[in-house]
Amino acid sequence: MPALDVAGEFETIETLLRPLAHPEWGRGLVDDVAVLPSRPGYDLVLTKDAIVEGVHFLPDDPLDTVARKLLRVNLSDLAAKGAEAFGYLLACAWSERCGWPEREAFAAGLAQDQARFGVFLMGGDTVKTPGPAAFSLTALGWVPAGGAVSRAGAEAGDLVFVTGTIGDGLLGLQAARGQLTLDPERLAFLIDHYRQPTPQQDFAEVIAAHATAAADVSDGLVADLTHIANASGVAIDLKLDSLPLSAAARAWFEARVDPQAALEDLATGGDDYQIVFTAPARLVETLRREADRRRVRLTLLGEVRVGAGVTVSYGGRPLTPGRAGWTHG
C-alpha cells in the first residue's frame, strides 16, 4: 500500500473538508466516527456509489463537477426510495493530477450542492493513488418507518412512469467527447447533464406516498425496469414511442436515419438519474397533479402485467434491444 501524503491529507481535511461537516453529527471531522441520534418513527436509508476517472468521468472533467456528480448520483438513489437526504460519508483517492487547486475545486463543488440539497459531510477518508483518481460517497437519508420503496412491489395492473427526460446522459457523454454535431447551446446542455445530473429530490415524497416500486435510471431505462420486473416477479411492457426527450435529444433524434435504433440507444444508455416507478392506475391524475405542482415532467411509459421480464415495443411491434443497459461486468 503506497504511503499517504500525511501533510496533504490533513491539510485537505482541515482546510477544505471540515467546513462541509455537519455542525453536530459530523463532530467537526476531528474524530474517526460520526454519531447520529435515532429519529423515532423513521428508518435510516443508506446508499453508496463510487466513480473512477476514465470510467464515470473524463480525465479532463473539472473536479468541481466531478464532486457534484458524485453527490448527485447518490441523492438520486435516495430519492428513488422516497428518502429525504441529510448527510454523506466521503472517500477520496487523489491522483497526481489532483493538486491543491483541484482539491479546492472539488470541495467548492460539494459546498455548492450541500447548500442546494440540504446535506452535510459526516466523515470519511482521503488517500493518494498513482491513478486514476477515484471517489466514493455513502449518502444517508430518512424515510418514515416501513416506507422505503423497493424494486419489489410492482403488481399486475400498475402503470409505469418516469420523471424528466431519457437519453441526455448518453448524448452528454458523446458531446463531452466531441462526438456530436449540434448547435452550441444544445451541446452545452447535454454536457452539463452528463457532468451534473439533477436528482429528483423534490419528487421523493411522491414516490414514498404513491409508488409500488421504483429505481433511479442509472444503468439505462430498460435495465432498471428489468431490475424492477425481476424483483417484483412481474412482466413490464415498455413503449419506446412514449420515451420523453429533451429539446437537445429531440434535435439529435430527428437527424437519425433509423428512429427505432436511436430510441433503443437512448433507452439503454444510462446516466439519466431520473426515477422510473410503478403505481396503481387509479392514481394517474393524482401523480400528474403532484408532478405539475413540483414542475416535474412525468411520462406514462407502459404497464405491468402477469409474467416475467421487460417487453419493449415500437410502433406497436415488439423488439429486442441489443443490450439492456450499462454493466461493469
Rank of each mutant, 00 (worst) to 15 (best):
P321L: 10
T47R: 14
L90V: 04
Q179T: 02
H227E: 12
L300Q: 11
L298I: 05
G167P: 08
A231S: 14
D271T: 02
L36K: 05
T15C: 05
A7I: 09
G309S: 05
D192P: 06
L78K: 06
G309D: 04
T65M: 14
F161S: 07
A204Y: 05
G302T: 05
T181S: 14
P132I: 03
H227D: 13
P19F: 01
A148K: 03
A188D: 15
L180V: 02
D31I: 04
K48Y: 00
T165P: 00
T65K: 15
V257H: 12
G167V: 01
V143E: 09
S150K: 08
L89C: 02
L121Y: 00
A139I: 05
A261T: 08
R177N: 11
H193N: 14
A115K: 11
H22W: 08
G99T: 09
R186A: 13
R195Y: 12
A105T: 09
T320H: 13
S38W: 04
V310E: 04
A115I: 00
A50L: 12
D43A: 07
A215W: 00
D31E: 15
A204E: 00
R18D: 09
E102D: 08
A108E: 12
F203E: 06
P59R: 10
A175I: 02
D271N: 13
S246E: 03
I13W: 08
R256T: 14
A208T: 09
P130Y: 01
L240H: 04
R103P: 05
P130K: 02
H227A: 15
T126E: 11
K239G: 07
G123R: 03
L36F: 01
E24N: 02
T181A: 13
R72H: 15
D113M: 06
D61N: 12
T12W: 10
V257W: 09
P280L: 04
P318Y: 01
L4A: 13
G309A: 06
S313H: 05
D168L: 11
G322S: 11
F203P: 07
A175F: 02
S76Y: 07
F203L: 06
A255I: 01
P197Y: 10
F106P: 03
R72N: 15
S95C: 09
V304M: 06
R289Y: 11
P184E: 11
F277C: 09
E24P: 00
L301V: 06
A67T: 04
D219A: 12
G82A: 03
D158M: 09
K128N: 13
R18P: 08
R289H: 14
L110F: 09
L44D: 01
A105Q: 14
G8S: 14
P318I: 07
D183F: 10
P40D: 09
H210L: 14
E24I: 15
D216C: 06
D64I: 01
V6M: 14
E205G: 15
R151M: 13
F253S: 10
R39T: 06
A115Q: 12
L4H: 11
R151S: 13
H210C: 08
L121P: 10
N74S: 10
Q114P: 03
L44G: 02
L121H: 04
V162Y: 01
A262R: 08
R297V: 00
V66N: 08
T129I: 05
R103C: 08
L319C: 02
A152T: 07
D272A: 09
G307Y: 12
V35N: 02
S38G: 13
R18V: 07
E303L: 08
V160Y: 01
